[in-house]
Nucleic acid binder design. Structure first.
Lengths: 128, 128
DNA sequence: CAGAATCCCTTTAGATACTG
DNA sequence: CAGTATCTAAAGGGATTCTG
C-alpha cells in the first residue's frame, strides 16, 4: 500500500506536462533504428559503411537520416576526414553513452515480458 | 575500461536478434498515448470517460484503439458491467504494472537530458 | 456511456537512381 | 566512400457522425 501510493506519486513524472517531456525523448529513441545504432556504436567509433553492414536491414537513406537526427540531438558525433575517398567516423557523445543504461533497461523488460505479451496476443486474436 | 567492455557485452541484448525483441516492445510503448494511459491507470481502475478526461488531448478513437492494443497484449484488463448505461472499468494487469518502473526510468532520463538535447538541437539548426 | 465507422490529411520509410 | 534526390506505398492519427 505504502509502496503503491509512492509509485502513484512518481508517475506524475510521466503525466507531468501532459507527457511532453517524456514523449520528446520517446520520439527520439522509439523509431525503428535509433537504439540499434546507439547500441552498435557502444563498441566504439564506426564508419558509415561499417554501421551499414552491422545493422542488417537498414537502408542507406534511413541510416543517414537517423544519424543526422542523433547528431542534431547531441547523442552522436560525426567526424569527417578530408581524404579521398572520404572517411567519416561516428561515435557516441557522453549524452549518447548515458542512453545505454536506459536502453538496457528497455531490453531487459522486453526479454522478461515478450513471452507473456505474445501469449496474450495470440489468445486475444484466437477469441475474436 | 573494465566497465566499458562489460557494457559493450551487454548491448548484445539490444542488437541480439537484430533488435526484434526490443522493437516489439518499443512498438507497443512508443506510440503517442500508451505510456500516458498506463501512468494514468497506475492510480487504480478507471472508466473510459475518466481516462478521456484525465488524458488531455487524446481523441476518442485513439483512446479506444490504444486500450484495445493494451488489452490484447495483456497490459490492461477490461471489465464491462451489464448495466444501462454501460460501465466499463480499465485497470493495469500485473504485466502492466511491471511496466511502471521502466516508464519511470524513461521519464528520469528524459528529465535529466531534455535540456542538453534541446540546446544541441538549437545549436545544430542555427549552424545550418 | 462507451464505443464503431468513415473520411482525410500527414508522416514514415523502403526502393531506386544519381553524385562529389 | 558517403552520401543526396525523388517517388511511392503504407501507417498514424484527428474530426466527425452514428449506435446499442
Amino acid at each position: 500500500m505504502q509502496q503503491d501510493q509512492s509509485r502513484y506519486r512518481h508517475t506524475c513524472m510521466i503525466r507531468g506536462d501532459g507527457g511532453k517531456t517524456v514523449r520528446a525523448v520517446l520520439d527520439r529513441i522509439c523509431d525503428k533504428w535509433t537504439l540499434l545504432i546507439v547500441a552498435t556504436l557502444d563498441q566504439g567509433s564506426l564508419r558509415f559503411t561499417e554501421l551499414h553492414q552491422q545493422i542488417t536491414g537498414i537502408s542507406q537513406r534511413m541510416l543517414t537520416l537517423t544519424l543526422r537526427n542523433l547528431e542534431r540531438d547531441g547523442l552522436v558525433s560525426r567526424t569527417a576526414y578530408a581524404e579521398i575517398p572520404p572517411r567519416v567516423e561516428y561515435a557516441l557523445t557522453p549524452t549518447g553513452k548515458s542512453l545505454i543504461p536506459l536502453a538496457l533497461s528497455i531490453a531487459g523488460w522486453a526479454i522478461d515480458h515478450i513471452d507473456d505479451i505474445q501469449t496474450s496476443r495470440a489468445a486475444y486474436d484466437q477469441s475474436k
